[in-house]
Amino acid sequence: MNNQTMGEPTRRDFLYLTTGMAGAVGAVAVAWPFVDQMRPDASTLAMASIEVDVSALTPGMSLTVKWRGKPVFIRNRTDKEVQEAAAVKLEQLKDPIARNQNLPADAPATGADRSAGKGKENWIVMIGSCTHLGCVPLGQAGEYGGWFCPCHGSVYDTAGRIRKGPAPENLLMPIFSFTKDTVIKIG
């Protein structure tokens, strides 16, 4: 290094650094659309809510509809099932949280909180996707009379709460509401 090259570096280095940084900023900006295109597109998001007519469901009947590519269980439960669900004490549950997106995140998994609410206690709406690894549980099966997942043997009760097996959480209840007495809007 002689004196001549020692004198110049500040201005030159600044120029090289600025150019390099501008190039890096450009590269990152270009990368964004390539990442962004992976997100659900506008037509997928537009399908986010559906309305289901449940007038034909008498107590003891279920309906499975597809919402966001997953099955949703809608069941008009019998009084016996509702009473069984209400009788279970919280400490008996593997997952004591309601997992009901219509309620606060820490709501307890009582029989009432795992239903469609006051006056609609017989109705239950849940995503039919086992919280273990996503298989679809079979309805009205297993030793608790609720749902039973054939993949890895998780057993849910009549309120869709996990009672036995590898699944960690109760079946998720999505955002839903009765828009009419016989129409449920999911999402």
Binding site: L15, Y16, T18, T19, A22, G23, G26
Partner: peptide
């Protein structure tokens, strides 16, 4: 950026 590359 073209200006910067040109100066560089």
């Amino acid at each position: 950026f073209a200006g910067l590359v040109y100066l560089t």
